[in-house]
């Protein structure tokens, strides 16, 4: 076995993959959020449509987005592998357990939270990414250049109150996932220091609240605007 596969096949190596892919996805969330916030710019979706076009055509972005899909899958697949391994490590559980005395609910529920996020992603991709790529999208023209009117698709979708609720709840799930995942990734990478760790933990918590909150704000605002 080569040293690479030996390392990655150890429990620590698998955790390393979880942490690295997780951190990448955290970065992705920032970029994605920055783009999406343009949906609520008061410009009838112009900046968002231009942004969406760039994202779809820029070759560098294309590579990154493929990587992104890869990392999501890797993160999910390794989560399944690790969870199965962990379940095997305790074949018989306890009759009485007071885990709340020693750990947070979110830290113990990363698997279920992750699964919910994965379901959300499937719905999300089917609703927007698939629609925009393969569906029929109306065109708009700005300054003589024609663009796909992605904004129209999104704002139509967010007129459905159930859809909005689904999004907002999913962002709540994401918040819990991040509230543990952010700091946990640093710990796994071995970054733990009396000086910096408290900051990382606070940053993680702030991130876990602010980013999903802003994501959730978009459908709410668009729903209100539309009705």
């Amino acid at each position: 076995m080569s040293w690479v596969s030996k390392t990655l096949n150890s429990t620590l190596g698998k955790k390393l993959l979880m942490a690295l892919t997780g951190l990448f996805l955290i970065l992705f969330l920032v970029v994605h959020l920055a783009g999406n916030l343009q949906l609520i710019f008061p410009d009838e979706g112009k900046s968002f449509n231009i942004y969406a076009e760039t994202m779809a055509t820029n070759p560098l972005i294309r590579v990154v987005s493929i990587l992104n899909f890869g990392f999501i899958l890797l993160h999910a697949v390794y989560a399944v592998i690790l969870t199965r391994h962990n379940k095997k490590s305790r074949p018989i559980g306890y009759a009485v357990s007071k885990a709340s005395e020693n750990s947070t609910w979110s830290s113990r529920s990363m698997g279920i939270l992750g699964t919910l996020i994965f379901i959300f992603l499937l719905v999300h991709l089917r609703g927007f990414w698939y629609e925009l790529k393969f569906g029929e999208v109306p065109m708009v023209t700005y300054d003589g250049v024609s663009y796909k009117d992605s904004f129209a698709i999104v704002s139509a979708a967010y007129q459905n109150i159930l859809y909005v609720i689904f999004y907002v709840v999913s962002m709540g799930v994401l918040a819990f996932h991040l509230s543990h995942g952010f700091a946990s990734a640093f710990q796994t990478l071995g970054i733990n220091h009396t000086k910096y760790t408290p900051f990382i933990k606070k940053l993680g918590l702030a991130f876990a609240i602010i980013v999903p909150a802003l994501f959730a704000l978009i459908p709410i605002v668009m729903f209100i605007q539309g009705s």
């Binding site: 390392t7 150890s10 429990t11 620590l12 698998k14 955790k15 390393l16 690790l82 391994h85 962990n86 095997k88 490590s89 305790r90 885990a99 005395e101 020693n102 750990s103 947070t104 830290s107 113990r108 990363m110 543990h180 700091a183 946990s184 710990q187 796994t188 990478l189 071995g190 970054i191 733990n192 220091h193 009396t194 760790t197």
Partner: peptide
């Protein structure tokens, strides 16, 4: 099993061994 950084170990450890040990081992291992 593998570590998921819940911190339950350290919270229950009668000798209060700190989680920073786990981070250090991760560093050393990688």
């Amino acid at each position: 099993g593998a570590c998921t950084n819940t911190g339950a170990c350290s919270a229950e450890c009668p000798k209060e061994i700190d989680l920073s040990n786990i981070a250090r081992m991760n560093r050393e291992y990688f």
